[in-house]
Nucleic acid binder design. Structure first.
Lengths: 225, 225
DNA sequence: TCTTCGATGATGAGGATTTTCATGGGGGTA
DNA sequence: TACCCCCATGAAAATCCTCATCATCGAAGA
């Protein structure tokens, strides 16, 4: 599995290369857009990791050139915080997924694996249930048209619920997904987090979408009365 | 690689079994101490994961019985938060490592792999430099005999420094270890964390142990003047 | 060698988030 | 109906991150 990393920041580049190598991939690193383009066109890489902030030839141009040449390998791009436009632009230009810096390496690894496994499963960008909407790309939620601000944990929790609508999610499962944490019976972080999410998402609205199933967990769904 | 999980809490047990299976191990699960003892003695497991809080025959007894029978496979035990005595007891009874609930699954996986790879590399329990001491087991630090309370991040950071005394640690490396985070050039979390740690560990003491190397990172060592 | 300047790191304060804790409500079951 | 868990909830505390500003280092030039 050959992966090409195009990243000018030395630390990040080395970090990625080392991490991916340790994870069993073959990773090459180039530190500017021009080399990146050439390598990407010439080499037989199965995935590209592309920083958009490159001096000289930037990430967009590299991506454009590669797609224009008909190369179809999945591209994961790295963008700086809160640059919503960047993310949209990247996906429009033919990238397959993105990651916002700073990111956890485990997160990157997970995405790399997904992209390599399923080909190019561009992430579903908008999730919704009833009048609740979540734009994963813009990290923005709304209900009945009203913008809702979510914290990181709230967002993760809501995303989890929306991706698994109708499924009963056990606390332990939620804990493992949102906190990467094994369930410890005497903490109630999950309940508290649910509470906060409900306050923002359900309290002022009808119908309620988050439901408690005693002894089992929670579901997000539209309940007929 | 067969692993035996002895855990009565259903959620945790299922979670562990599933996670380990997905990670490529063969995991069997038993839900009480008696079965655990029998399985552990009879089956050809290469590693045991043992909850100490079992109803009936508890984790200690299981561990004792297994070691008494001469079985030498590594044992990783799970204990509840802040039960320092438990941890000490476990290691004394012949366990090889422990994990405090709640824990990240990735952490468990890392330890399982280490135990299986290196045989039984009982973790170094006490770290020290000059009059600074860190008891990894008890999660307790002291300098010049004075107890120092550390937060989770501070502890992780200090542990990292002590395990790598004399080595220059780049910010990016620190970030990846303590935050599992790729380095983002415009955050200064690392500096701030260093600051907090210094306040507790160096400010009121001599000699200073944390040193800054401009452009490179930080080292922990005793500096001759 | 001294001085200046740019860059890197240190520091303090503020704020937001997250967790813990204690208590109360409510549903299900005997 | 009464009891017992399980969950909800609010408040307080702790931790962590961001931001703005200040200090310091080291290089370069006089």
């Amino acid at each position: 599995m050959k992966i090409l990393i195009i990243e000018d920041e030395p630390r990040t580049g080395d970090y990625l290369k080392q991490g991916l190598t340790e994870a069993g991939f073959t990773a090459d690193l180039v530190r500017n857009g021009l080399d990146g383009m050439h390598e990407g066109l010439a080499g037989d890489y199965e995935l590209l990791i592309l920083d958009v902030n490159l001096p000289g030839l930037d990430g967009w141009q590299v991506l454009k050139a590669i797609r224009a040449a008909g190369r179809e390998m999945p591209v994961l791009f790295l963008t700086a915080r809160d640059q919503v436009e960047d993310r949209v632009k990247g996906l429009e230009l033919g990238a397959d997924d993105y990651l916002v810096k700073p990111f956890a390496f485990s997160e990157l690894l997970a995405r790399v694996r997904t992209l390599l496994r399923r080909g190019r499963p561009r992430e579903l960008e908008k999730l919704a249930l009833a009048d609740l909407e979540l734009d994963v790309l813009k990290r923005r939620a709304s209900r009945a048209g009203q913008r809702i601000d979510l914290t990181a944990k709230e967002f993760a929790l809501l995303e989890l619920f929306l991706r698994r609508q109708g499924e009963v999610l056990a606390r332990s499962f939620i804990a493992s997904q949102v906190w990467d944490m094994n369930f410890d019976s005497d903490t109630n972080v999950v309940e508290v987090a649910i509470r906060r999410l409900r306050a923002k998402v359900d309290d002022d609205f009808t119908p309620k979408l988050i439901h408690t199933l005693r002894g089992m967990g929670y579901v997000m769904e539209i309940r007929q009365a």
